[in-house]
Amino acid sequence: MITTCVFRSFCSQSITQSIPALPATPRDVLQPKRANYGQPLALIPQRNDVLTVTPWLAPIVWERTFDPDMIDSAYKSLNITIATTVFAVGKYTQFLQDFLETAEKYYMSGLRVHYYVFTDQPREVPRVELAAGRKISIIQVPKYSRWQEISLRRMEIIERHINETIHREADYIFCMDVDMKFHDRWGPETLGTLVGVLHPWFYEFTRDKFTYERRPESTAYIPMEEGDFYYMAAVFGGRVKEVHALTKKCHEHLDKDKSKNLEAIWQEESHLNWYFLHNKPTKVLSPEYLWDDQKGGLPSEIKRKRFSAVIKNKEAVRENV
């Protein structure tokens, strides 16, 4: 019988030999030193309108499920760097200014952040004033003939750059879409060993409504009777070694499908959902951390819109629809 590892952090993993041992990084759960904060009360639920913990005991992060002062106190005393990747290819360079400027206002404030901008037009990367301890690296990538190909290549490119440089430069990494902007705090409460984000259009649905890859011949295949949540590929992250393992496996699966002339229904997002089904995230972020402005007003369970996809004409920015 084949068994699947649910708690990856407790399983022995073989990591690419070319990646040396990383420096010690903090646990998912930290212990603040003499921080002043309100007493947590075990008998009074902070949220009773949403699921706040998964069946495998990973926290789901919503407003009022954490104390921001406690979290900030714990992490700001640590010597950590968060890598953050974005791809700005073709007309998507127009979104970089908003992404970077709002990130500098709301994203991981007070922590060291290293942005990695992958683009085919390095001269179009805007100059943005960065806070102390934050920097941008620009990496030139080719512009492919199909926007789907850009999506499919993302896992390969991230894997390669983690292997070559990022593993020496950061402790955690978030991989984000560029056609987004920050609106409110996105802090270290989001850090974890392996982190996924609930898709804003699917978090209310049952698994039979999820747009998983349903063809058995694809390596991204998920049967109708399986699946936990539907995760959006616009954001995923975790410790660098864990995200390397994720991107490596997704890259391998994408190549296997391509060898059979297959392309999963939602490209790398389909493979990401397969990966998270078989390698459970240790932390899940609510749709507060990945909203879609096309949905209009916020439902009652979304107390704060922290990060969202901007409204745009996709046909206009996808030059090769």
Rank of each mutant, 00 (worst) to 15 (best):
K305N: 15
D49T: 04
S73H: 07
D177V: 01
F118T: 00
N279D: 15
Q294T: 02
S259H: 15
L41E: 03
F276I: 05
F182A: 01
E225D: 15
V197H: 12
N279P: 10
N320H: 08
K312F: 13
I265R: 07
S286C: 09
L100A: 05
L152G: 06
V284T: 00
W56R: 02
K312E: 13
R306W: 08
W266V: 08
P122Q: 03
L246S: 03
C175D: 14
V61Y: 08
V243E: 07
E319Q: 02
I162E: 10
T4G: 07
P59M: 00
D177N: 08
P68I: 05
A316D: 05
R8K: 13
R318T: 02
Y106R: 10
N36H: 13
K258D: 15
I60N: 11
H271W: 02
T52I: 11
E225C: 14
G38A: 13
Y275T: 12
C250V: 14
F95Q: 01
V195A: 12
F118K: 00
I222H: 03
L298T: 06
I166T: 13
N313F: 15
C11E: 08
H271F: 03
Y107V: 02
M1G: 13
F205S: 11
R215W: 12
G187S: 15
V61L: 06
Y106G: 09
V317S: 06
F95A: 00
S308Q: 03
P126L: 09
E268H: 13
Y116R: 01
K91E: 15
R168Q: 08
S270N: 09
V243L: 13
V117M: 06
T25F: 10
T54M: 15
K105T: 15
F205H: 12
A24W: 06
E149R: 08
V243W: 03
M176A: 12
L30F: 07
A131M: 14
R153A: 07
P287C: 01
I80S: 02
R123P: 00
Y115L: 01
S12E: 10
R127F: 13
G196N: 14
G90W: 02
W201I: 02
G133E: 05
E268S: 10
S308K: 03
R318G: 04
I136T: 04
M70G: 12
Q267G: 09
R215Y: 06
Q94W: 05
C11T: 00
E268V: 06
E189R: 02
V321C: 11
E204H: 14
K258S: 13
A245P: 01
E226I: 00
P142G: 04
